[in-house]
Amino acid sequence: MEQYSILGRIGEGAHGIVFQAKHIETGETVALKKVALRKLEDGIPNQAVREIKALQEIEDNQHVVKLKDFFPHGTGFVLVFDFMLSDLSEVIRNSQRPLTPAQVKGYMMMLLKGVAFLHQNSIMHRDLKPANLLISSSGHLKVADFGLARLFSDQGERLYSHQVATRWYRAPELLYGARKYDEGVDLWAVGCIFGELLNSSPLFPGENDIEQLCCVLRVLGTPTRESWPEMVELPDYNKITFKENPAIPLEEIVPDTCPQAVDLLCRFLVYPSRRRCSATQALIHPFFFSSPLPAHHSELPIPQRGGRPPRQRLQAPPTDFSVDLPLQNSVVDPSELRPHASCL
C-alpha cells in the first residue's frame, strides 16, 4: 500500500470503494479498488476469487481493464488498475458532443471485442452497463468491474444468482428470477448499451423491477410460447402477468439509426437467451463494415483530464443557482454580437 499515495476518491460501488492514487515509484496514476471482506472468519468469499481470477485470466485483452496489482490490505484487499478518465455513461450523456454513428460503431466494436473475449474464456460479466465500460486516455473502451463475473459452463447444472446486473440492463430471464442462465445475460446488456449509444438515453429505464419488466415488454411485446418457449420454466413466471401487447418495431424505438443498426439491435434484444447474437457473430455483422466505418479509437472523444463531470444523480444537485451573480456575467456580450448583428 505504501507504494501508492492516495490522490482522491473516484467512486463507490457495491463492491468497493475506488480511489485515485499514484504509484510512487513510477509516478503512474492508478485506480485502487478497495474491497472489504465482511468477516475474516468466513474466509475469502467466492465473489472475490471470481473477480480476481477473471481479471487475471483475461488480462491481455485490449478491451478489458488490466489488473496491475493486487494485495491484501487490512480486512480486505486492494485491486490496482490503470486509472481511467471516464466511462461510457459520461460519454453518452455529454450533450456537447453527441456521438456520431461512426463513434457508436467504434464503441460497439470495442465492447463486443471485449465481451467476445470474455465469453471465449467462459466468463460472464453479469454487470455490463455503460458506467462499467471505462474509457482510457487513448479513447479505448475497456470492460471493467468484474465484481459479479463468474465462470459459466455448458453443462447447465450450475445455478447462478439472478440478483445480478444493474436493473436497466438486466435480461428478462433474470427479471423472471432465472437461476440457470448463460452468457446471454451479457448479450442482453450489450443490446441495451447499444440502444443507449444510439439514443443517448437508456433503452429501458425502469424505476423498479416490475416496471423494468414492463419497459421491456412494452417494446418487445408480451412474450408468447412461440417467442419465448423457456419462459414457462422460469421461477417467477406465474407470479406476474401482463396485459398482452404487440411489439413496437425497433425502428420506432431507435428512430435515428440505419437499418443495419436496427437489425443488429434486434439480434440482441430477443427473449430466449440462446437466440441472442453472440459477440463474435455480432462482430462480423454488416453494420461494422458499412459506411461510415467504425471510428478509430483516436476519433473517439478523449476524456479530459480531471474534468469528470458530475455523475447521474437521483436528486437535484447542490449547485449554487446563481441569483446574486451580476447579470453581466451571464448574458452574452453585445460586442460579440455587434459585428454580426449589424447586418440585420
Binding site: 500500500m1 505504501e2 507504494q3 501508492y4 499515495s5 492516495i6 478497495k34 471482506l37 475474516l40 475469502i44 496489482d69 494485495f71 491484501p72 490490505h73 487490512g74 480486512t75 480486505g76 484487499f77
Partner: peptide, 26 residues
C-alpha cells in the same frame, strides 16, 4: 509481501490490527 505489512504513510489508516488482518488475508 512488499505491500501489506508496512505501515501506510498515507491516508489509509493502517495499524497493528490491520497488519494482522492483512497477514490473515494473505
Amino acid at each position: 509481501g512488499i505491500s501489506t505489512e508496512r505501515s501506510s504513510v498515507f491516508s489509509w489508516g493502517y495499524d497493528e490490527f490491520d497488519k494482522a488482518a492483512s497477514r490473515q488475508v494473505q
